[in-house]
């Protein structure tokens, strides 16, 4: 499964929405259900799935599919570099 597909799947599960609506432009403004509690659930699921850790200051910035994808890619790249 591609990274993007994995993110879409986690977003759909955490936000309790159909995966089909997690398009490239999906954000807190296109998904009404995406509330603060769902957001925290989503962050925990992403951290577990990708074995990454987000700082407090990063968490509220992850408010769109693109922001999440870019942040995960950056974290995984850093992780690979460190190995």
């Amino acid at each position: 499964m591609t990274l993007e597909k994995r993110i879409r799947s986690i977003m759909a599960d955490s936000l309790e929405v159909d995966e089909g609506i997690i398009g490239d432009d999906a954000s807190v403004h296109t998904i009404a259900r995406w509330d603060s509690l769902q957001h925290l659930r989503l962050i925990m699921a992403l951290q577990e799935e990708f074995s990454v850790r987000f700082q407090d200051i990063e968490i509220p910035e992850l408010v769109s599919f693109r922001a999440i994808r870019d942040a995960i890619m950056a974290k995984l790249a850093l992780h690979d570099k460190a190995r």
Partner: peptide, 15 residues
């Protein structure tokens, strides 16, 4: 408070 990520999330959600 910076650790209050739920509130900061709400700010972002509201634009």
């Amino acid at each position: 408070y910076a650790p209050n990520v739920a509130s900061v999330f709400n700010y972002k959600k509201m634009g």
